[in-house]
């Protein structure tokens, strides 16, 4: 199925292109706009972006595969990143990860059976003073306890997915 941005997002791309002296520099921001709409960077998205910015699909793929936040496969409605780097680990990040794995019934790297949550491990997210923490979609949740975490997860269950 061919991919296309909504007209509103197309205008975002037009605006972005005015920020840079060439089209290629808009590649990462444009990929972000696409992922926000589509949920992941599918081969169709790659083809569309390549054409829009006058780049080869190989160049676009090379960039997509370099950055961990661009999903190369479909993900759950919400993506949970658990920070496991030292400051968070010192304050119990492993307990947070274990709890989430049990609760969601999947290991880090997987998606819960109901398709609601994808659980991923993250490296330091620049919230070390508020450890332990998780990022869910665009939001940080900090100074976690298991009780707080349970409430947060529940609050996402009823909400629509990050991508429209």
């Amino acid at each position: 199925m061919a991919f296309a941005l909504t007209p509103e997002r197309e205008r975002e791309v037009d605006e972005l292109l005015t920020h840079y002296p060439n089209k290629r520099a808009a590649l990462i921001p444009v990929l972000w706009i696409c992922q926000r709409q589509h949920g992941w960077i599918s081969p169709e998205v790659v083809a569309w972006v390549a054409q829009r910015l006058e780049l080869s699909t190989a160049v676009v793929t090379g960039v997509v595969t370099f950055y961990t936040m661009f999903f190369q496969h479909p993900v759950g409605s919400h993506v949970i990143w658990v920070c496991r780097t030292l400051s968070c680990d010192l304050r119990g990040a492993k307990v947070i990860q274990d709890h989430l794995e049990e609760k969601l019934g999947c290991h880090a790297g997987g998606t819960s059976k109901d398709g609601k949550f994808t659980l991923l491990k993250a490296e330091c997210l620049a919230a070390c003073g508020q450890a332990p923490m998780v990022q869910i979609d665009d939001d940080y949740h900090e100074n976690l306890t298991l009780e707080k975490l349970d409430q947060i997860i529940e609050s996402y269950r009823g909400t629509p997915s990050a991508q429209e």
Partner: peptide, 29 residues
């Protein structure tokens, strides 16, 4: 003129020349 530019998850993009590559739409090498 001042513009923000978002990265996409790669520690190495903090190194200034990797950052410049990333700003130019390249792999952050």
């Amino acid at each position: 003129q001042i513009y923000t530019h978002s990265g996409a998850g790669a520690y190495i993009c903090g190194e200034e020349t990797a950052l410049l590559n990333s700003l130019e739409g390249r792999r952050g090498e």
